[in-house]
Design a protein around this nucleic acid. Sequence first.
DNA 1: CCAGTGATTCTCT
DNA 2: GAGAATCACTGGC
Length: 207
Amino acid sequence: MTIFDTAATVDIARTLLGATLRVGKTAGIIVETEAYLADDPASHSCNGRSRRNGSMFLSAGHAYVYRSYGVHWCFNVVTGPAGVGEAVLVRALKPVDGIATIAERRGIVWDGSDAFNIPAGGGAAMKALCSGPGKLCQALGITGDMDGSIIGPDSPVSITLPDRVTSDRAPAGILATERIGISKGKDRLYRFVPADGELRRWISRPK
DNA sequence: CCAGTGATTCTCT
DNA sequence: GAGAATCACTGGC
């Protein structure tokens, strides 16, 4: 039993801010999420199960990975019980581990310096590594192979939640905004980003 | 701002 | 089945 089973999808989207998403030797801190609900016109699940969205109806803690615009992969954490069809889209990361590998996958020149020595303020190139749902999948090597797989410490894809009490990683304030790139369901403020602080630097779009 | 991109889904025959 | 519409995006102006 994890938070993915017990909390509402919108709450999970908020809780995931500050969590570490790891795939192999690459990892980043989640700084931007969006919730997609069962009764939500913007959700892939709103018209029922199909070939593409099948894994969105798995039980909480599975990965839903789909191809967007025919070219990019997007990564979601399935929430709620099996058969419901709710998930949280991960939209941006602050890269923290395996940055040389990430830069290479993204086709961005990295000078080879210590991967943990992130330049103060993060340069434009750093920001471009994981500041979007398609970018972070390319950065971490997430592909359709991982669609329907279970997320966990013993799986290729893992998520470590921040310690709310002792960690300075979890953002103190969270801002809820309109979701990006949708045409329906714009009235729902289901996109979550840090309201301020260092993590906010890494989100895909200011507003 | 906007073009490229191609899989998936929708709407008819 | 075929043709059209629709995108939970990115990168380059």
